[in-house]
Amino acid sequence: MSKEILIIDDSPSVRRMVAMTLQQEGYEVTQCEDGAEGLDTAKAKRFDMVITDQNMPNMTGIEFIQAYRNDPSSSGVPIIFLSTESEGDLKSQAKAAGALGWVMKPFEQAKLLAVVKKVVG
């Protein structure tokens, strides 16, 4: 069974790029465009991994992580945080909120894939 990954990013192009990269490797990808939608989706169904951007309308990535980790269903679900380099301080906030790791933007598709493989196999 292929692993299911949730990607939350308000940028359609980045979202699509991530989705296509992962789909090519056989992952199943669900896309959400902000934290609020992501939270509903993640709570409704257990994913093998969640990738979230930080800067989004309605609910930021860190707010999403906090809210999701408050829900028992998130137990054991790895979250990878997407961050741009000027937001270095946010990495630690994301970790404190319960992210497993992060990927810095801009990232190469190969890099993202390596991280995903490392986390979900």
């Binding site: 308000d10 359609p12 465009e33 989004m56 309308p57 930021t60 301080d89």
Partner: peptide, 21 residues
Amino acid sequence: AEAPKAEAKKPAAKKSGSANV
């Protein structure tokens, strides 16, 4: 130390909806 920055980033203006989706 950086907290106010993150705070200020948060008020995600609804307006951006036009630009995003």
